[in-house]
């Protein structure tokens, strides 16, 4: 069964504290921000970009953009941020750009598409080191895939995914539901 639980208890409290530290001293607290988000961001980004794109580079760039933005913000602005969705907005943009850059270079073989389901390659032909589920995930249409990945791998709440993607929460819920249904169907 596909699991539906997310971040542990106390997560919101920790987030608050991190945000207060950032508002006090960005340089001092940024190390904590990276420690807090690196695994979630990396796991999610890895499922959203073609295999040929280095997820680590995308995450590094996302963190650096976040850092540059944070140092230019006032403490009040930092306290008002929705930290997780804000970071994901930056990361999602970078994922999209990376996929687009690949698409503009036809000589670089497009891996599983950010832009849509795979045309003729079945999941069986995927690299052996990736699980069945990983391969299936790559066949989802981009918006469904993003919603499912942010929800279950990124551990974001529906409202946060809505903020991160700039789409209504209702659409996110239905994307997640459709995505899950599709995964289950393909699995059988």
């Amino acid at each position: 069964m596909i699991a539906t639980n997310q971040g542990g208890a106390g997560f919101l409290g920790e987030m608050d504290q991190l945000q207060r530290s950032l508002a006090r001293d960005v340089d001092d607290a940024f190390v904590e921000l990276v420690a807090e988000f690196r695994d979630g961001l990396f796991s999610g980004v890895r499922r959203l970009v073609p295999q040929s794109v280095d997820a680590e580079d995308i995450c590094a760039e996302a963190f650096l953009r976040a850092y540059r933005a944070l140092v230019s913000m006032s403490p009040a602005e930092i306290r008002r941020l929705d930290l997780a969705p804000w970071l994901w907005t930056i990361a999602l943009n970078l994922c999209r750009n990376a996929a687009r850059r690949r698409a503009r270079k036809p000589w670089v073989q497009l891996d599983a598409a950010w832009n849509g389901p795979m045309a003729d390659r079945g999941p069986e032909s995927q690299a052996l080191d990736r699980s069945h589920l990983e391969a299936l995930l790559e066949t989802l249409p981009s918006q469904q895939r993003a919603a499912v990945v942010l929800r279950y791998i990124g551990g974001l709440a529906y409202s946060d995914i809505a903020t991160a993607t700039g789409r209504p929460e209702g659409s996110i819920r239905s994307d997640v539901n459709r995505g899950l249904k599709r995964l289950r169907r393909m699995e059988n």
Partner: peptide, 9 residues
Amino acid sequence: MKELRDLRS
């Protein structure tokens, strides 16, 4: 089926 959240690495 491997759970989705297990894809967290």
